[in-house]
Computed example of a mutant assay.
Amino acid sequence: MAAPTKKNASSACVIPGGFTVLSLKYRTNSTAQHQLCVKEHRVRAQTSEHRPPDRTLFVLNVPPYCSQSVVKDLFSQFGPVQHVELSEKPGAAEDKHPDLSPYFTPEQKQCFKVAYVVFKHSSGVAAAKAHPYDSPLIVSTKEKQVHTGLKKWIREYTQSFIKPELLQKAVDDFVSQYDKRKEEEAELQKKEAEEQQEDEEGWVKVTKGGKGIKSRPHSEAANQRALQKEHNKKKRKELLNFYTWQHRNSKREHIAELRRKFEEDKQRIALLRAQRKFRPY
């Protein structure tokens, strides 16, 4: 990384690449100082509603002890923050499932991360980029303390215990939603099977939908029947003309069948001529 260039003591620190360097301290009296690199998030190939380009701030080098709530509190001084997204590396926004229970989510990896801070107004991004380098952001204050080290481990260990009644309720809700979803899928498949059911002659009733209605794709039952027919057809033709004598015999049988049909057609034409019903022209 190139050395930051500062015009004066109260100006923002901008480095090559368009990043603004913000200083970060754990406490006010801490001697160690950390640096965050921020930049307005603009990616042409990525169009996400969760990361609007004019209100999203891209943050690099976020320490492991900074959670989503901590990052939100840090950047709230520049303007109201809508939401914060933490990721191990830059990339497209991941589609999260809101129905997942918090008790079954995978554990987050403890490492330096990148953050996407989405402000409610575009002025928040400009204020963060114009923040002076010599005015560090404070992580842990008296009002909002952020624990690290042994205190953090003890706090996380105590929070890892789950009350049995809450866990049981989460499991029951998940099972009930799963059963309901399976019942809806079974009902839909049953309805499609009834609509795609063949009559005695092998015909399937096809109805035309109203104006603007999209055509319904083939049901799973219809697809299975088609695959089974193709499988049976291939099985009947399996090794039919594998040997030379098989190919010669099938050729001879085909010629005999054509001759037989030709004789039948000659007899039919002769009968029509006798009845004066044969008019080829």
Rank of each mutant, 00 (worst) to 15 (best):
W203E: 08
V175E: 09
G212W: 00
K208D: 03
V206W: 00
D199R: 00
A170I: 07
E195F: 02
G210T: 04
E184A: 15
K190N: 08
L167R: 12
A170C: 07
E183M: 08
E184Y: 05
Q197K: 06
V204W: 09
V204A: 09
G212A: 01
E194Q: 03
P164S: 09
K180S: 11
E156C: 11
K208P: 01
L166W: 11
R181I: 00
Q168E: 14
E165W: 13
K208M: 07
L166N: 15
E198L: 15
K211Q: 09
G209T: 02
W203V: 10
K180F: 08
E194L: 07
F174R: 10
F174L: 08
S160W: 04
V171P: 00
Q189E: 01
K190D: 03
K190V: 02
R155V: 06
T207H: 10
V171A: 11
G202K: 01
G210V: 04
E200N: 04
E200W: 09
E156V: 08
K182G: 01
V206Q: 01
Q168R: 12
K169A: 15
Q159S: 13
Q177A: 15
E200F: 09
A193P: 00
E198W: 03
Q197V: 04
D173Q: 15
K163G: 13
Y178W: 10
E194S: 05
W203I: 10
S176V: 07
L166G: 06
G210A: 03
L188V: 03
G202P: 00
S176E: 14
V175T: 11
Q197G: 01
L188I: 02
L166P: 06
D173R: 15
